[in-house]
Amino acid sequence: MHDIALGQYFPGDSVMHRLDPRVKLVALIAFITVIFVVNSAASFLLLAVFTFALLLLSRIPLSVYARGMKPILFIIIFTTVINLLMTTGGRQLFSFGFIHIYEKGVINAVLVSVRLCFLMLGSGLFLTYTTSPLSLTDGLESLLSPLSKLRVPVHEFSMMMTIALRFIPTLVEETDKVMNAQKARGADFSSGGLISRAKALLPVMIPLFVSAFRRADELAVAMECRCYRGGEGRTRMKVLRCGRVDVVFLAVFALLAAAVVLVNVFFPLFAFKL
């Protein structure tokens, strides 16, 4: 249970950690756009160099990023196989029985795998590893705040998200505790058929639900006691501020992104023709 890593924030004090979350969110969106726009090998090579530099800048062990890739391994294998088998076009490279592999299939498979890897690295680099869940929701709220003019309850959504994120570890811990308590009374969660296993979870689910409601109630009272009444006119202890580092980062990042796209346009070296 202790291995559940939701919101895998990796505490640190690097440039990547200190950037304004809004800057990181915008950068991530740009990053994703770039990886889906470019398709030349030269561009991806350049992008790989930049990404690697940023990974080093984040001062998070590369093994952590490598571990983060594990969950998408299956998706990569799956899409690769589907692409290889289902895409037709270009020269036929290989044929055996019902298996026909075409040039375009190989190109597609490689392209999708590379993009998925970049996607995973990028989201880890800009958000999940370097941004605490709280500053992430703060950043989101601030970015989405124009929507509140359209009567979208942005603050309420972000408060809900903050609370949910805040209580995930608490609930995980509590699940752990209740499970242990019931195990101590001989509850058996790991044997028997589907129905008996589902039944065995009741002694865990009921106390959990009861305590989740109790917590919600207590939290609501505590918030009211401190005069919480929504986002209007609310000030913050930690005001998000775009400092010089953020501006420099954005400028450099924009230049790099432009460079990658330009390389794609002018040097379609080994470009994957689609």
Partner: peptide, 30 residues
């Protein structure tokens, strides 16, 4: 675990059954 009975911290949060009787009987039933 039947021979070494453990009462965890704040054990009141582990109660789940419909009646107190059924809840106390959870261990013996198991």
């Amino acid at each position: 675990r039947f021979r070494v009975g453990l009462v965890m911290q704040y054990p009141e949060y582990q109660l789940f059954d419909e009646t107190v009787r059924a809840d106390i009987a959870f261990g013996p039933h198991n």
